[in-house]
Design a protein around this nucleic acid. Structure first.
Lengths: 189, 189
DNA sequence: CGCGCGATTGAGTAATTTCAAATCTAGTGG
DNA sequence: CCACTAGATTTGAAATTACTCAATCGCGCG
């Protein structure tokens, strides 16, 4: 399982065994069952998570109790309520398992120690943060320029397995339309 | 003008005069008139920009020629077509002046040299990238959970000067509604 | 076999868009 | 200082799109 992490990091920065051991020592492994919460809104956000296997949803609940999916997270993704994590405030969103999931957990303190102890890792996280920023901007762009059907196709192109792994209701929530509308768009293509 | 940059950086990492001189030496100053383009879609993206003064829009044009505003950039903001900048590919978006604007330009090579030459600066950019990622996620969240009127109020709360500085058509485009709809929401509050 | 969850379908309603026309405003030249 | 024009904003009305709520369908699991 730690091999997943190592390969993931080495796509960006090569590590010696010793260096990886140092990095690895700051993470702890956790396993969660389907429907379990890694982060609950209102609570403190202890970790940022690297997903080894499984599928998660980052959701925000509005005043009327409706759920909105801000992001999915699958193998090789980092996820958290980043605002709450970095600022050490209460979570605004929840992070919940769609499937049984295994993650590597990194606390803010450990994150800082890894960055401070190994210059390469700060570089790695910079690359990841930039990639995350870019990905979010792409998603904003798709909200502005594409209708729900096009967004649906883009999503499935990028992450074909989601179609099998997540109920359509959740995909609709991610795309920002009702499940009924998604269903209708679906049949009309 | 370079003082603006220094203060901006020192909000996150303190710099000696010498260190700042090193950083500063990698930027070049440019001034643009209202309506001028810093980045044109289809062209190479040479720089990431730090806005010293003025106001910019990052826009994407869809197939039908309609403009969509991905982001505004004002004093103290960093902006670029980051995907194209980091990957050194053709711009998908354009960056254009809404007002006369002064920027500090940083090429990818200089960006890397600054990071490599001064650990603190890599740390600075990491903080900025994380902040940018978080801000984009907040915007996605507002698309999912708020209607156009609420998004409009949130925008004006966060950036009150935009109301004076940008034509309403552009605000509408940023919010993802037609200018007519924005006008109507506006009068009904 | 029947229960329950997810997905679909239908009908009516609400919100948004589009296109067109009317207003308003700031800056310019006379 | 005023009239004029270009750009920005507002308003109106019809058409489209998406939403809600309710009912139905389909399928896997106990």
């Amino acid at each position: 399982m730690q091999e997943t992490l190592r390969q993931h990091i080495e796509k960006i920065v090569p590590l010696t065994d010793e260096e990886f051991a140092f990095v690895r020592s700051h993470f702890i492994v956790k396993k969660f069952r389907k429907r379990a919460f890694l982060i609950r809104k209102g609570e403190r956000v202890k970790y940022t998570y690297f997903v080894v296997s499984g599928l998660l949803k980052l959701v925000h609940e509005d005043e009327s109790g409706k759920e909105h999916i801000v992001a999915f997270a699958m193998e090789d993704w980092w996820e958290s309520d980043f605002l709450a994590f970095f600022r050490q405030t209460k979570a605004v969103m929840s992070l919940q398992c769609i499937e049984d999931t295994e993650v590597l957990c990194l606390s803010l303190e450990d994150y800082q120690q890894v960055c401070a102890g190994l210059q390469k890792m700060e570089h790695f996280f910079l690359q990841k943060a930039n990639a995350g920023h870019i990905a979010s901007q792409q998603r904003i762009l798709s909200f502005l320029t594409s209708n729900a059907k096009e967004r649906y196709e883009q999503l499935l192109n990028r992450y074909p397995t989601l179609f099998q792994r997540a109920p359509k209701t959740l995909l609709a929530s991610y795309l920002g339309v009702s499940r009924e509308t998604l269903s209708r768009l679906w049949s009309s293509s």
